[in-house]
Design a protein around this nucleic acid. Sequence first.
DNA 1: GTAATTCTGCAACGGTCACTGCACAATGGA
DNA 2: TCCATTGTGCAGTGACCGTTGCAGAATTAC
Lengths: 203, 203
Amino acid sequence: MPAPGRPRGFDRDAALRSALRLFWERGYEAVSISELTEAMGIGARSLYTAFGCKEELFREAVELYGCTPGLGTATERALETAPSARAAIEAMLRDNAEIYADPESPRGCMVVLSATNVSADNESVRLFLEQRRRAVGESVRARLAAAEGEIPACADLDALADYAMTVLFGLSVQAKDGASVAGLHKVIDAAMLGWDGMIRACA
Amino acid sequence: MPAPGRPRGFDRDAALRSALRLFWERGYEAVSISELTEAMGIGARSLYTAFGCKEELFREAVELYGCTPGLGTATERALETAPSARAAIEAMLRDNAEIYADPESPRGCMVVLSATNVSADNESVRLFLEQRRRAVGESVRARLAAAEGEIPACADLDALADYAMTVLFGLSVQAKDGASVAGLHKVIDAAMLGWDGMIRACA
DNA sequence: GTAATTCTGCAACGGTCACTGCACAATGGA
DNA sequence: TCCATTGTGCAGTGACCGTTGCAGAATTAC
């Protein structure tokens, strides 16, 4: 039983995916409504009817990014399935590196890069992504805290988590600048030696 | 003997510093000409007479950032004055961290953050900063290559340099998100253990 | 003084921005 | 068939974008 009224003439999910890709590639403010309507294959009026306004569309696109397998879910999945804290951090970095440098997709992480600088009017958008970055950091911290026995009691969990996030953020910039998947993995090799060093230095 | 014609009615250097601060804080596209003229205390016509156009003004601001002691010179200075490759990398990270989280200045690195996403028309601006980031990476690489004997011959200098740059980039994002100086230093503690691990793993 | 040169304030330029009012189209239910 | 509801195309809204033409102001050289 569809809702009453004229049915929507386009695939809302597909249109949202097109918007996601555009926002991911060039950022929130740098993408105009007319570019969006062209990429989504709809008129401006339909965009507003379906998604409300540009900011709401962006937020929905970020949500979709976050819950799409192979994109934003990589971090969560790595943290949940890896058998140890160390393996979780490494999997998080490596799986994301593959996504960041995938030639089929925009480069780097949408959450890190798509609203780093905005005009005063759109500060709320920047804060929205900042909060999502913070939430990822919290997840990492929680995963470390749950690693009973594996990490020496004297270790600074906050510093470990911040270190992992810093490397993750840096990988996005490197990928945007054209780094290869192999190059990113070499960086992660070094980063994991940093992890081991921190654990060893404390024990 | 000043040049003929009506003399400029404002301090060009001071105006450029105001523009630098604004671009640093919010990025190239997110800052409008009217915001610039207000901050610089001049009319739009004077801005164009003195600086050419918005993009040229931005490039000059980035140059100024790069050659101002306590800002963009920190990296170069650290690489030149530190007594060892390891000390050079550590000084580069720590000195920049102090700048990135300085409460008196915009947060993070202007070169990393002020043009990460731009509209299609201004891609040249993004590429300009990308090239500057690349140049810094080259400087780091060169410093490591010059560290005769200190680094084992089997070490991957490219990976070491890319690792240092990745951490440096990540620190900018962390600072923009509000990280404290102390927090950044803890991250660098970890990062330097990564450095030591890479050296040790190879030797 | 006059000419040449440069800078500045004013008032606009065409273009694009995000967004919307309105008439009409397309559906479901009575 | 007629109504209620919702989506869509068209044509615009006012605001702001980066930029500029022009007249006049301020200086040096003569």
